[in-house]
Design a binder for these strands. Structure first.
Lengths: 236, 236
DNA sequence: AACCCGGGCGACCATCGGACGCTGGTGCC
DNA sequence: GGCACCAGCGTCCGATGGTCGCCCGGGTT
């Protein structure tokens, strides 16, 4: 029975590491923690910053120089943070909504097409994905509000939006009503995707590539890893 | 009329820059120089080492440290140079034949498959091309005679072998009989490929990707550039 | 034995994909 | 106004794709 893929997500074993800033109601969060986590998955946590220097050969990054203020050129004020909004809903206050977030991905697609066109004209290597070059092009073309870390951060959210708009919309609605922050919503987006991957023989790469809009985005490491642990846990 | 693609190659405007160590008989070399070269193409020459620091932002490489001899581990003697051989012909003397060269490409394909299998089992990113990782794997698995610069150097020769075995064989035969060195044969391999690209709407990338064996190899920069100048010169 | 041609491949480089964690905007009290 | 939260994104990093040119093997004289 396949009425709501969201339902299916519940049959997955979620990983609490995903539940950043662990708020309480574990039962009700879609795809939220219900089982004890797979130990190996702790290392999966992106941005965890928890235990001491995690993996061998991965030293901590250096402290950044504090941005000598007023140095020279016109430093853009940072974008307003995202909040969880329902489809069509405008964000209140100094916030951006999720429709805007997804539109950024569409814009990147347009920028990629421009870069591809230019590459073809000049007989250069033609990128099939959104690469550094595309982000650079976007910035130089005036879309200074687009940047790599941000876009990469929410790729899987956009993936859900592309692959199952109904489920994506429903998830937004639930998280908005519950007053969850963006981080929580973002974390929840993983589970429906893992369920979809399972229904596709655990081939997320293929899931991405088969979708017109998604094809141009790299599969996020964490999503691939999540699919892998689920697959190992339950066999194919 | 399409009897011998080699014939078609003659209608292309060849680039003398390709004709490394310019020997004489321009008329008879398949795809050899007949017209004055396109000026812009001089910059195309791979390994040209001619004029002063060519492009901005591309500084000359540093001099290599002279390999402190007898440092430690078992330095492999370098492979015997390739000579132009006909299909099935064994190389005489301390040389390797072209059948062996092409076999190296097949071996790399096998190594790629092993790397892909391992990646899939570990849930890691799965390469579709012969990457550094594949060369590393080959080396560690005992195929120390495989290395990146060599394989990349002859990719287009292997491409011709894959895409038109008859023409490839014929070219080998001609160059062997004429006593040409490997460099000359290698240079000549470009032209039939450019002709094929033309017949495919100048899409070499697609030409590579459509072929089972070739798909895993990056299109060499020089080949892409050659196709580009030809296309611009004669319009699509 | 001496020479020199030519090509194998070690090593270099710009740039890439990827990620961390500081900074400061923002809403709440 | 002050504070605490949290997420935007500047910046770093190991590894990649790509190539140059040094060094020396090898045939010739």
């Amino acid at each position: 029975r396949r009425e709501s893929a969201m339902m299916m997500a519940e049959s997955l074993t979620p990983v609490s590491a995903l539940n950043l800033n662990n708020k309480e109601p574990p039962q009700l969060i879609i795809g939220g923690p219900q089982n004890p986590l797979t130990p190996g998955l702790l290392a999966l946590t992106e941005n965890s910053s928890d235990s001491e220097d995690k993996r061998m050969g991965k030293k901590k990054q250096k402290r950044r120089r504090p941005k000598e203020h007023g140095e020279d050129g016109e430093d853009r004020p940072r974008e307003h943070p995202f909040i969880v909004t329902e489809p069509g809903e405008a964000a209140r206050g100094k916030k951006n909504g999720l429709d805007y977030l997804f539109d950024l991905y569409e814009q990147c697609g347009k920028f990629l097409e421009q870069v591809q066109q230019l590459a073809r004209e000049k007989g250069e290597k033609c990128p099939t994905k959104v690469t550094n070059q595309v982000f650079r092009h976007a910035k130089h073309t005036g879309a200074g509000y687009i940047n790599k870390p941000k876009m990469r951060h929410y790729v899987h959210c956009y993936a859900l939006h592309c692959l199952d708009i109904d489920q994506s919309n429903a998830l937004r609605k639930v998280y908005k009503e519950r007053g969850e922050n963006v981080g929580a919503w973002r974390g929840a987006c993983y589970y429906p995707l893992v369920a979809m991957a399972r229904d596709n023989g655990w081939d997320i790469e293929g899931l991405f590539n088969r979708n017109e809009k998604l094809r141009i985005w790299y599969v996020p490491t964490k999503l691939r890893q999540l699919c892998h642990v689920e697959k190992v846990k339950f066999g194919e």
